[in-house]
Design a protein around this nucleic acid. Structure first.
Lengths: 208, 208, 208, 208
DNA sequence: CATGAATGAGCTTTCATTCAT
DNA sequence: CATGAATGAAAGCTCATTCAT
């Protein structure tokens, strides 16, 4: 009757979650099977149920981890108020750069949330948190006079998140696009949107 | 020697497709089963295979119909060159208005296309077509001096489509948002993006 | 209310049977489907049931036709009593020559008869008839002093038939065999068996 | 960390194979269903797939086991060179004696091999091996002066195998035959064929 | 005579989950 | 902690057969 090492337990849990991510990214939530995940994680199916009570629970945990990552990403951001528009434009357009193999997962997650209320809850909570973080940045930018003061920070944040989601869809819709070109235009779009200023080409704005 | 009405055949096919849409919207592509679809369509499981050779084929047909609808939507648009920015802004923000029960389907479709190459093909073809239609509108707008001439029409179209996709995700991410507020901001975003002009609040732009 | 032309009816029946033969030879009795047969015969599934009451009935009719062909083959044989051993040896070894695409059917038929009593009956009746025909030839040969008089004609006939069946299996077991070589040895075997004489090499016997 | 006994696994595999043999012998390969096999083996349908990856795989394994048995049978044979003709005659005619419930399976197997290339390969490999074994016996007999030296051992072996196959068909074609009578004649046939000597009635030859 | 729409049982296979060891 | 044997429901799909037209 040994005591369980909670650290090891958590590590294993994370390893399983990572394996699940890979499987789900490859095969989708319905297509990825428990036995595939077990094979990928190098454990037996019976054992997996010591860490997660169901497939559902894995998906939920994964969703939390996935979106938690996004929150960390934005939390880490603490730009000079003057540069906020540029930084946000960069964050959005960087969606297209990250060679995140989990890319497809986000869309899968959103689609699944549309019919799984528990997942929907997780998603809403995280989206609210994200909106809050971005909204704060925008407010700071407005205080510094670099963001159009008439924009509602929360609504604008909401739309920026939508744009990020949409760009993930784009890589599937139009996989042959030149990502650098797209990024430049996205950059322009975000800056024009946030500043409300004329002629906000990337070069000019970063100069100003 | 009675060759039966091909019109009836096509009608039935469409009815099955409609039933499938409802089921897939409710349960997802993997979750929606042939037997559910048959129940919804009021036919026997065996009979469905007189109309579609596989579940895959149903999904493909659905994808084509779904995206074909979008193309029709944009093809129907023939705005005054002067009003193009406004009209496109309206189209984008209207994504949020349509109580299209097929809403969740689009994301599902994109997620599925990420791992189903045949579906990916359908999607790419239609996306290209859509981009072309919107790009033409933008070119016309540029010729009329109402759209920023420095924007590449195809890239800009691509991003508008992404935005539409992203807005669909938003209704899931933040179902409690006030859609009218969102629409107003989206409107602003699109106009600022396309015109490149300062202070492009909806009211002002439509006046100009 | 026209009167049915019985000749045309019978022709169609035969055409369907021929189509069924091709399908069954290709796919087996269980594997060959009614709809495949209909496609091959160029008729609709519903119509097929005007000619045969069930798939079973088709198989039965086919079995009868198939074995009837063998009976015709042997009935047509009316050799000089002196030559009977040679002729029979030729008939047996010719099994390997006929490019009868229905070859596999015979084995299929026998295997099926092992578990389908109705088919078994058909098969037994025809086998008895065949044995009778061959037995008569053997008796004639014995009367002419060219067949070992100690052989029971019916038993010997039975074994010759077995040999024919077995040779059909051989083309599947050893498809790369040189059929001419095999035929020569089969020839020797049959002659030695029937005559009971020493050194019955084909050349010598036919001379003698 | 308990890796379970691979012996038990193999035993279960064999038990399933045995159950499958019984089902296939009764219903044929296409007629015998997975669920019937599972019922016969006393396991659940899902569980069967821990042992065999498909129905096809079961059939293949069965074919291998079945034909492997025949090889063992012949490998076990190490007769005095003098007695080879008798021994082989006995082996052939014993086909009719064995109350092997798998009898019908062989024909089914051959028929199936005619349209299943993987099965055909298994069958050809085993047939070649069998021919080799019998051919060696015949060569030994030839060296001992008891087998007609002009016979090609491989061809003769091929034909003996065919005869065995054919005798299996006979029990279906003519189930009312007196098997002992048949066996005696088969015995005669084989001896006459192999020795090439006159009057090789069983009694005489075994004396000589 | 002829069609093909329609059925529904049954097929092979997959999979989340449980449990004895 | 860890295994993998075992379950059974449900999946996608096929097919012989019937029937209105």
């Amino acid at each position: 009757m040994r005591t369980v090492d909670p650290v090891k337990h958590e590590e294993k849990r994370q390893a399983i979650l990572a394996a699940a991510s890979r499987c789900f990214a490859r095969d989708g939530f319905r297509g990825g099977s428990i036995s595939t995940i077990c094979a990928e994680a190098g454990i037996s199916p019976g054992h997996l149920y010591h860490y997660f009570e169901s497939k559902e629970a894995i998906i939920r945990a994964m969703a939390e981890a996935y979106m938690g990552g996004a929150i960390d990403h934005f939390t880490g951001l603490a730009p000079e108020p003057k540069a906020i528009a540029s930084v946000l434009a960069g964050v959005v357009s960087d969606t297209l750069r990250r060679d995140d193999s989990g890319q497809p997962l986000l869309l899968e997650l959103v689609a699944e949330a549309a019919r799984n209320s528990e997942l929907a809850q997780v998603m809403q909570d995280h989206s609210r948190a994200l909106r809050g973080l971005i909204g704060d940045l925008l407010s700071a930018g407005q205080a510094a006079g670099r963001i159009d003061p008439q924009l509602d920070p929360d609504l604008a944040a909401s739309i920026l998140l939508s744009l990020i989601d949409g760009l993930r869809a784009m890589t599937i819709r139009s996989p042959n696009s030149d990502l650098d070109d797209i990024r430049a235009v996205v950059d322009t779009l975000v800056k024009r949107f946030l500043t409300g200023h004329a002629n906000c080409r990337s070069d000019e704005v970063t100069q100003g």
